[in-house]
Design a protein around this nucleic acid. Structure first.
Lengths: 197, 197
DNA sequence: GTCTAAAATATGACCAGTCGTCTATATTGT
DNA sequence: ACAATATAGACGACTGGTCATATTTTAGAC
C-alpha cells in the first residue's frame, strides 16, 4: 500500500530529525537539514507534520515512549530486588550515554526543556508531563525497596524519586560539558552508596 | 570622554543581551533583538563585539564573575561554620531564582552548556572551565567542614563537590520545567540533611 | 489484462521575513 | 581640516511555511 510507505518515511523523518535536534537543539536545526538527512523533499515534511512545533512534540513523545518502555519493564521486574533494579537502570543509562552517544547530546527531553520550557507554553506542558510521568515506576520501585528494608526508611518517596531524577539530569548535562562519563560514575556512587543505603 | 560612554553602552548591550539569551537561548536570540533592547543601533554591536560567538563568551564571563564573587566570599567566610556557609549559599541561590527570576531561565551557564557545549568547541571549553573553577571554593569549604566534624567523613571531597554542583544544575532545570521552586527545596533537604550530615 | 480519467500524493520553486555580518557614509572630538 | 568613531542599511544566506504543478495510484469500462 501507499499508506505503509508514507508511514515508513514519516518515521524516518521523525527519527533522523530527533537525532539532529538532540545534538543541535530546536532553534539550531532547520527543516531543510532534517529532510536532507532523511532523503525526503521539503514539501513532504509538512505532509507529515503540521509545523516545526508539532514535529518536536511528536519527537518528544517518540523518544520518551522508547525510554519509558524498558525502564518500566526493568523497574517493575519482580525477579530482581528493588535496589538492584535501580542499580541496573543507572548502569544501563550510563552504558548508553557512554558507548552509544560518546558522552554527547545528553537527554533529548532535558535539552528541549532547557531551550523551550520557558518560552513555549505548550511544549513546557508536554515536557513537564513527560518528566512527571517518568517518575511513577521509580516511585513504586523505591517504595518496594523501603518495604523490603533495602533502602533507608527516612525519605518521602515522592521527594526521593524527584531528587534522583533531577540529579541525573544534572549529571548528564555535566557529562556533555566534559565529554567524560565521570559525572555519571559519581552520581551512581552517591545515589546508591551514600543516599539510598 | 567618548571612551567612557562607549564602554557604558557596551556594558548595557552585554547585560541586556545576556538577559535575553538567558531566557530564549543562543540560537533563539537575534542580534537585532539585543540591540533593540539596549537602544543601540545594530552596527554598534560589531563595534563592541567581533561576533555573536564572541558576545556569548563575554556574556558567560560576565555572568560567571558576578556569581563567583559572592559565592567565593560566602564560602570562605571564617566567621560562619562551613556547613552553615553551604546552607546559606543554597538558600541565597533559591531566593534569587524564586524571587528574582520567578522560577524561570535557570542558570545561564547551564543553558549555554546544554545548547552549545556539544556543537562549539571553543564555547564548550569555556563552559567546562567555568564549571570546574566554580567548584574550588566549595571544595575548600567542604574540606573544612569534614575537618570540623560537621560533614560525614566518608566522601572523596572532589567527587562530593561535583555531585553537589551537578545535582543543583539538575534541580534548577526542573524548577524551570515546573515553574515551581519545589525541586530546589527537595535539593536543599537532600543535600544538607541526608547527604552531608 | 488493458486503457483511461479522476483522485491522491509528491515535489521543489517560491514567499516574506530574519539571520549574522560588513561597509560606505555620517557624525563627532581634536 | 583631519582622524576617529558611530551608524544605517545593504548583503547573501537562510528561516519556517505554502502551493501550483508533476507524478503516481486507484477505479471503472472494455
Amino acid at each position: 500500500m501507499r499508506r505503509a510507505k508514507t508511514e515508513e518515511k514519516r518515521l524516518e523523518v521523525l527519527e533522523k530529525g530527533t537525532e539532529i535536534m538532540w545534538e543541535k537543539g530546536y532553534n539550531g536545526t532547520g527543516i531543510q537539514e532534517i529532510v536532507n538527512a532523511a532523503g525526503v523533499p521539503k514539501g513532504s515534511f509538512y505532509a507529515y507534520f503540521s509545523s516545526k512545533e508539532d514535529f518536536v512534540m511528536e519527537a518528544i513523545n517518540h523518544y520518551d515512549a522508547i525510554n519509558r518502555k524498558w525502564e518500566f519493564d526493568l523497574l517493575s521486574d519482580q525477579s530482581i530486588s528493588p535496589f538492584e533494579r535501580i542499580r541496573t537502570m543507572i548502569q544501563k543509562r550510563k552504558y548508553f550515554i557512554k558507548e552509544k552517544l560518546n558522552c554527547k547530546r545528553g537527554c533529548f527531553v532535558s535539552n528541549m526543556c532547557e531551550e523551550l520550557a520557558d518560552v513555549n507554553e505548550k511544549l513546557g506542558q508536554l515536557i513537564r508531563n513527560k518528566i512527571e510521568n517518568g517518575l511513577i515506576p521509580l516511585k513504586k520501585c523505591l517504595q518496594e525497596g523501603v518495604e523490603k528494608g533495602e533502602i533507608r526508611n527516612v525519605f518521602d518517596i515522592d521527594e526521593l524519586a524527584n531528587f534522583i531524577d533531577n540529579s541525573w539530569r544534572g549529571a548528564i548535562m555535566r557529562v556533555k560539558a566534559d565529554q567524560s562519563p565521570k559525572a555519571m560514575d559519581i552520581y551512581e556512587k552517591f545515589i546508591l552508596e551514600y543516599l539510598l543505603k
